[in-house]
C-alpha cells in the first residue's frame, strides 16, 4: 500500500487500507502528499454535507455522533467521522478516545472513522482535517462529521470547515459562559442540550433560547445515550442543509472555507522559509518585531522578483 495511484484507486473503491493510508500521507507531511491531493478532486464534493460537532469535553459529542451514525446508516448512507483530540503540549503525544463510543459500528465498513490529534499546529490541522474529509467524501461518505473539543482557536478553525456547525452542551459539564465568550456559540447553527434527563437541563435550555432567539439558531434537547431527540436533530440538520443549498449560502460558505484553506496552506509553506531567514537576520532581533517581519516579507518578495534561483518548498503541510 505505498503506490500513490494504487492508493487513489483504493479510495474510490472504498478500501479501508487505502483511505487510512491516504490520510496519513497528508497528516504526516509525506512528500507524496501534493501528488495525492491533486488526484482526489472529488466531483461529489459539492453533494456531500460536512457536519461540525463541537463543545466542551464530556458533553456527549461522541455519543451523539454514535447515534447519528446509526441514523444515517439506516438511511443507507455511508458516513465518515474525523474525530479530533488535543495533543499534549508537553510530550506531543495524544490520547484519542472518541472512537470508544463508536465501537458499535466497528465492523461496519461503511462507517469510516479517523482519529486525529491537533499536533500543536494551527493551519496544519485544518489542512490535514480538510484533506481527510475530502478523502472520505471521495470514498462515498455523506455526511462527514468532524468532532472537536471546543477549547482553542485551532479547533474553532476546524469547525469552520463544516457546512453546518452543532454545538453540544450539557448541564453541569464545562463552562457554558466560557463557550459563549469564546465565540463558538456565534458560529453554531444548532445548539444541542444533551443529557436532557439530568437536573439543570431545562434551565440551560431556556437560558440558551433566550440568548439565541434573535439569531437564526435552533436549540434542541437530546438524551444521546438513549437516542432520544436524535431523529429530530437529524431533521433540523436536513432542513438547514436544504435551505442553504437552495439559497446559495452553501456554495458561498464552501468558497469561504476554501479561501481559508488556501491561506492556511500558504502560511504553512512560508513558515519554514521565514524561520530560515530569521536565523540569518543580524543581531538578536532586538528591533520592533513588526518592522522585522515586514523586512522579512519584503526580502522574500525581492528574492522572488530577483530570479527564482532558489527552490521554495513545494507542498508543505
Amino acid at each position: 500500500m505505498n503506490d500513490i495511484d494504487e492508493i487513489v484507486k483504493g479510495i474510490y473503491l472504498k478500501e479501508p487500507r487505502a483511505i487510512g493510508r491516504a490520510i496519513s500521507i497528508i497528516e504526516d507531511g509525506d512528500q507524496r502528499a501534493g501528488a495525492l491531493l491533486k488526484q482526489i478532486n472529488a466531483k461529489n464534493i459539492q453533494e456531500s454535507t460536512i457536519l461540525g460537532i463541537t463543545g466542551p469535553i464530556g458533553t456527549g459529542k461522541s455519543t451523539i455522533i454514535n447515534q447519528l451514525i446509526a441514523h444515517y446508516r439506516k438511511q443507507g448512507n455511508r458516513v465518515g467521522i474525523v474525530a479530533i483530540d488535543p495533543s499534549s503540549p508537553v510530550s506531543g503525544g495524544a490520547f484519542l478516545g472518541d472512537r470508544i463510543r463508536m465501537m458499535r459500528h466497528a465492523m461496519d465498513k461503511d462507517v469510516v472513522v479517523r482519529s486525529m490529534a491537533t499536533r500543536g499546529k494551527q493551519g496544519g490541522l485544518c489542512a490535514a482535517a480538510a484533506a481527510a474529509v475530502r478523502i472520505m467524501i471521495c470514498s462515498g461518505c455523506d455526511p462527514v462529521i468532524i468532532e472537536t473539543v471546543g477549547v482553542g482557536q485551532a479547533e474553532i478553525d476546524v469547525v469552520r470547515l463544516a457546512d453546518i456547525t452543532i454545538l453540544v452542551l450539557a448541564p453541569g459539564v464545562g463552562d457554558e459562559i466560557q463557550m459563549m465568550k469564546a465565540g463558538i456559540i456565534e458560529i453554531a447553527d444548532i445548539v444541542v442540550v444533551n443529557k436532557a434527563e439530568c437536573p439543570g437541563a431545562d434551565s440551560l435550555f431556556m437560558e440558551l433560547e433566550n440568548v439565541l432567539h434573535q439569531r437564526n439558531c435552533t436549540v434542541c434537547r437530546v438524551i444521546a445515550r438513549e437516542a432520544y431527540g436524535i431523529e429530530k436533530l437529524a431533521v433540523f440538520i436536513g432542513v438547514i442543509d436544504k435551505e442553504r443549498r437552495k439559497s446559495g449560502q452553501f456554495t458561498n460558505k464552501r468558497k469561504q472555507t476554501r479561501e481559508t484553506e488556501i491561506i492556511d496552506y500558504a502560511i504553512e509553506m512560508m513558515r519554514d522559509e521565514l524561520r530560515r531567514r530569521l536565523k540569518e537576520y543580524p543581531g538578536n532581533y532586538t528591533g520592533d518585531p513588526r518592522t522585522i517581519a515586514r523586512k522579512l516579507i519584503d526580502d522574500i518578495c525581492i528574492a522572488e522578483l530577483d530570479t527564482s534561483k532558489r527552490n521554495c518548498p513545494e507542498v508543505f503541510l
Binding site: F95, G97, D98, I100, R101, M103, R104
Partner: peptide
C-alpha cells in the same frame, strides 16, 4: 435482560 435493559458502554478515561 439485554433486550429490555440495553447494554453498558464504558467511559473512555483521561
Amino acid at each position: 435482560l439485554r433486550k429490555v435493559f440495553g447494554v453498558y458502554e464504558e467511559t473512555k478515561g483521561y
